[in-house]
Each structure stands twice: as C-alpha cells, then as structure tokens.
Design a protein around this nucleic acid. Structure first.
Lengths: 233, 233
DNA sequence: AATGCTTTTATGTATGCACATAAAATTTTG
DNA sequence: CAAAATTTTATGTGCATACATAAAAGCATT
C-alpha cells in the first residue's frame, strides 16, 4: 500500500485526530513513536513532533519520555476562557458601555483580604467599588483591593471615568494569578445597586494577581442575572 | 557590551517576559524581529521563534506576518479550565464519590433541546437525570440528553451504577463542543434533591458536544452551593 | 526480594538552511 | 492621482542532523 504523504504538521495533526476519533487508536492506547510515524507519513520527525506536541498541549495525548505517547484515557476537556476587560466584552457584543464609580477609599482591609493578599494585617489598601453597565443596565459590580505599595501610581488615579479593571491592565503587570468562578446570592447591597431581587443568583469571578511574591490586586466581579461565560471545546 | 547567550527557548522566553514585565518593551510596542533577536541572544532563529510563538499562544504577544511582533496592548487573560469527569474531580479532592440515578427515559425532548441539538422536533432522545455525591452529600445534579442515533450503544446501558458523565467520555467521541458557565437559582425540584433552600444560587455548566455536524449530547450540571471552579492564570 | 548501577529508547530541543506566505511598502500603470 | 501590479520583508513552516534527558527495563550486587 502506498500511504498518502502528509506534508504539513497540520495535516499530520488532522490524521492523528482522525485516528483517535475513529478509535483506530483508542483511549489509553500507546501510539507508534515519532520516528515510525514520520516514516509512515513521509515527513520529518520534527513535523510529527510539532503535531503531537500541539495535541498534547490540548490534552488529547499524554506524552512521557521513553514511555511513549498514548491517547488520553479521559480527554480532560480543556476550555480556554478569554477574560477580557469588561468594556471590551460589552462593546464586542454591540452594547453601549457605561461606568460608574461607587466608592474609593484607602482603608485597612478585612483579615480575609489581607490574608489572601499576604499583606500586613494593619496595612492600608486601596478599595474601589464600581458598577459597569451595558446599554444603561447594570452589567457587573466590581469590588477591588489594590496593593498601593506595589502600584504607587494608583494613588494619583481617581477612577472616576476609567475603571480599575481597565487601568490596571495597562499599568500593573503581574506574573501570575488565580481565578475562581462561582455562583453567589446577591446581598441586599448588591441587589439594590443592580436593581435585581435580593438573593438573585449572580455569577461571580474572583481574581487574585501576583507580581512575583507580592499580591497586586484582588477583585470580585458580580455579574447581573443571566450572564453566561461561554467558550468552545 | 557582551550579552549573555540564551541557549534554550525557555530562557529566551524568560528574558522576553522579563523585558515585557520591566516595561523595556511596553504594551503595543513593536519588538525586534526574530533574526535580530537571534543574533542578540546568540541562538538560532528557530529557537527565538519557539519562544515567541509560545508567548503569542498565551496571549502576551501579537504576531502578524511582515507586520512584526508586538507586546499585547491588553493581555487578554487566558484561563484554561480542566473539565474532568465528576468522579475524578471528587476523588482528587480526597472525597468519597457517590452516584445515584434519578431517571432514565426515552422521550421527545422539549423544543429548546431539539432546537439546540438540531434534531427533529419529534425525534425521541435518551433523557438521563442523576445525582453525584461527595462524601454522601449532594455534589451536582446532571441533566442530560443523548442522541441515541449517534450513540446506539447507549441503549444497552442502564446508567444504574456508571454515570452518563463517565460513560460517554469513554464511548462517545466528539469533534467539538460548546460550554457555558452561569449562575442559576435552584428550582423546587433541584432544591429538594440537593437538600438546599429553594432559590439557592447554583453554579451551572452547560455543555453541548458534536460529532462533525451531529449533536452527541447536551448536559446541564448544577453544582451544590459553595462550588468553585478555579484555575491559575 | 530489595537495592543500586547500566543500558536502552522515546521524547525534547537546538541548529542551519530553505522555501512558503501574508501583508506592508513601493513602483508602475491607467 | 488613484488603482493595480510588483517588490520587500517578517513570520511560518519543513527538513536533516545532532545531542540532551527522563524514565523504563535489564542487570548485577547485596
């Protein structure tokens, strides 16, 4: 038999995907090594490597040195979410973006906040609360703590017209962070600001970002009822 | 000056990250081309390419042919979520996993379901409802519709002891899918099954998977109050 | 049988080179 | 002068080769 040749790493990837999908290689099964596949596909090993590495990054293959490559037993679906600046998120959906500052103080945060941010218990942080709107309707409440020691320039910013959400993206770099999604009931306060029933179910995003070993900012975003965060698989 | 040489693509990536982070290259700014960087770093262009490509995949750089590479103006945070089989999710947290089938019927689905799945309005689908438990407490309610035409083997499966969540992972491949996260209020029904207050805020995951152009399954997972989906940035 | 050493082997990566391709920049043309 | 054709250029990719490295497998020693 004279197998067709696969000249691009994309076509190699497609063929591998097809075999996984067609169960020619079933979950958990060891697949031929790169060198053999290269011969079979009529291309260089590096081309095969490129294709398989990409699939491994997407969680469809498990690779280990010497142990070889096997089809992921349970393809942990990896959903990649793009967390954009709220203004862009609204505008991309064709909505009119609005912003309103609710409060801005420099205060000693509750222990839960200083604990998570690993700041001194008595150290003051900048606390900003704001409302983001889409087409003049409440879109999300932003409740944020900012480490002024790390981002000193923040002291000069009033956040009257530019949201902390957007300002920090531009002015406060971070090395890594954690993000959590959950559902919470609207507090009396939140419900009033958003104009929704108390105890409404709100989608919440909690984010905590770090610059090396120091926390930069901790934010909770509460989205209006009906909000959905979606992506492809 | 005699710059140190960067021999691995990782070290090149680290150096590029450092420059972005230190604002030596600021957001939106065009950075030197691959060839020049290769000379500066004392490595091959392909090594630089590997490093920059990886950073671009992570959303930190924007690259365009001929136009060059620039630092992302607003680094859209890309959060990658691992959506695992519920049993594994529970067991990984050290919990005891439990499972209980609530209902299993072959019925004509509501129009909203047949519409989303693009099946005939009068075509019967397999409907499965089940409860997943962690340490004998309600963990999540699974409400699933399965296209029996695409997954005929499903007819022989009772789902008495194996959840559809897990069974499908093994037996029903898919090419792509959509996933959405939201917050919903517990219905009377849900609240009773979970043993929580009516209108509790529940975290919801809606997933719809396809095999080429045909829908495989549509599922809604409702998680107990307090559930958080978390990941790093 | 448990332990440590050595070999084998599949993946991981670096390099130099070539050519492909998209898009900006420039020149030619109407 | 504007539109179309052409050139230039930075990224994208493929290939052959070489060496690095992790980890499994085999071997030997206790």
């Amino acid at each position: 038999m004279n197998a067709p040749t696969f000249r691009s790493w994309q076509s190699v990837q497609d063929e591998v995907l097809r075999r996984i999908h067609a169960r020619e290689w079933s979950p958990g099964e060891l697949i031929p090594n790169e060198a053999d596949l290269a011969v079979e596909f009529g291309c260089a090993r590096s081309t095969v490597n490129r294709a398989l590495r990409s699939l491994a990054e997407n969680g469809l293959l498990d690779r280990k040195r010497k142990a070889g490559t096997r089809v992921a037993a349970q393809p942990v679906a990896k959903a990649t979410l793009d967390i954009a600046v709220l203004r862009h998120e609204v505008e991309e959906h064709g909505g009119k973006y609005g912003y309103q500052l609710i409060a801005r103080d420099v205060v000693v945060p509750p222990l839960s906040v200083s604990g998570a941010m690993k700041t001194m218990a008595d150290e003051k942080l900048l606390h900003v609360r704001a409302l983001h709107l889409a087409d003049d309707e409440a879109y999300a409440i932003e409740d944020r703590w900012i480490n002024t020691r790390i981002v000193p320039a923040v002291s000069a910013e009033t956040f009257q017209s530019v949201s902390a959400n957007e300002w920090l993206m531009k002015h406060a770099p971070y090395t890594h962070g954690e993000i959590a999604f959950s559902a919470v009931q609207a507090s009396v306060d939140d419900a009033e600001i958003m104009g929704v029933a108390e105890n409404s179910a709100l989608f919440a995003i909690d984010r905590l970002t770090w610059d090396s070993e120091v926390s930069v900012t901790k934010v909770k975003l509460l989205f209006s009822p009906g909000y959905q965060l979606r992506t492809g698989l």
